[in-house]
Design a protein around this nucleic acid. Structure first.
Lengths: 221, 221
DNA sequence: GTCTATAACGGGATAGAC
DNA sequence: GTCTATCCCGTTATAGAC
């Protein structure tokens, strides 16, 4: 989900109370699957911005233009089940963003730097709200909501795999590629944290430079 | 605050209900300043582990062996005011940890790596609970609790300053030192996130290797 | 300064009509 | 499937006794 879409969804939910009570034309795209999808997307956006504890089921329902009981209808496991599914959804989209950055150049150093710059642009253009969809929720619930921790670990592993594949394609040794890819994800996560908290994308831009340096210096890079 | 102290404090609070209701001998160290201090330390420990939203005033009072109204007595601004002060407290201690790591070697590359390894040990030995005292709370409340965001920014800036000073001492050019120091903090934050979520200190250990590489390659390093 | 008690509110979750 | 209404609980914060 792009930042603009998130903002639109939020605005619609806030301003569109009339739309919720008014009968919806049945020829539209508002079938069950669509409602379920809206709930997941709204949850993903809220988790990305506020994390798990600050996001109420009521707020999710409001943002998705649905009633709280609809949420429990589609997700009998309640907030936890929904959050897990939403995290997977957000993680997949974030993975596409990383893949887009990696694909921007055949040179692995430039591609890695491009990832950091892409995150910097996305974050700044969203007024420092659209960061990693996993970080806040994962840190908040580590050791206390196993399903979320598992989903977060899968996401981080997947992203690392994307980077590692790019590094290996470029001739970097598999063991070095794996380790370096983990460091790339660590750096992106940390720099995004600093950029978001400070309201300044310098950390992500510096990360781009230093990541490129690291990749260039790696064996067979 | 060390991990062992945190655990002791928690255990005391849970098992020591009798101690709370029993009259305390007035010759002890339980004066007002001490109670206030216990509240701050308990809050810092809980913020570090669970973040802001998951930490209730009741839980803080329990962990500090005090009553909720004592909390409001010392911190009329309520949870926010207390959290800000606790974050500053935790940030100062974390700064000492970083300084300890930096002081462990005259070589800036080894010193930086030592920081990452020190965090890895601290985190693992605390069963992945004692991470950065700022990260969770800062991410959770970014854009919504300005005082906390400000305290977090101050902490991150301070830590970066510690690293930058070490780099400059070693002859690295000031501009490069500043930028590289920011990247060091980014990497530590990100690697700690990955280590904590994954329950595996490999990211922090890999970060140690790659940070040392970066510092060695920096101009005049 | 610390206690007990409670107000005021919002949270997650459920029941049953339609 | 979606709505309205509601239950129960935990939360922040305050009041007043001691």
């Amino acid at each position: 989900m792009r930042a603009s879409e998130v903002r639109e969804a939020g605005a619609t939910a806030e301003a569109g109370e009339a739309g919720r009570t008014a009968p919806r034309r049945s020829g539209g795209r508002s079938d069950a699957a669509d409602t379920r999808c809206r709930i997941i997307e709204a949850t993903a956006a809220l988790l990305q911005r506020q994390g798990y504890e600050s996001t109420s089921v009521k707020a999710i329902a409001g943002a998705a233009n649905a009633s709280p009981s609809s949420v429990y209808h589609f997700f009998p496991g309640g907030k936890q089940e929904l959050a897990i599914e939403a995290m997977r959804h957000g993680a997949a989209e974030f993975g596409e963003l990383i893949a887009e950055g990696l694909a921007s150049s055949p040179d692995p150093a430039e591609a890695t730097a491009a990832c950091a710059l892409l995150l910097a642009d996305t974050l700044r253009e969203s007024d420092w709200t659209d960061g990693c969809p996993v970080a806040v929720t994962a840190l908040e619930t580590v050791g206390r909501v196993p399903g979320l921790q598992e989903a977060a670990t899968e996401a981080l592993t997947h992203w690392r795999g994307l980077v590692a594949a790019k590094l290996r394609e470029s001739g970097i040794e598999p063991a070095a590629a794996r380790s370096l890819a983990g460091t790339v994800i660590s750096m992106l996560e940390g720099a995004e944290l600093l950029s978001r908290v400070g309201g300044d994308d310098t950390p992500l831009r510096d990360a781009a430079v230093h990541l490129a340096q690291l990749v260039r210096a790696s064996p067979r890079g």
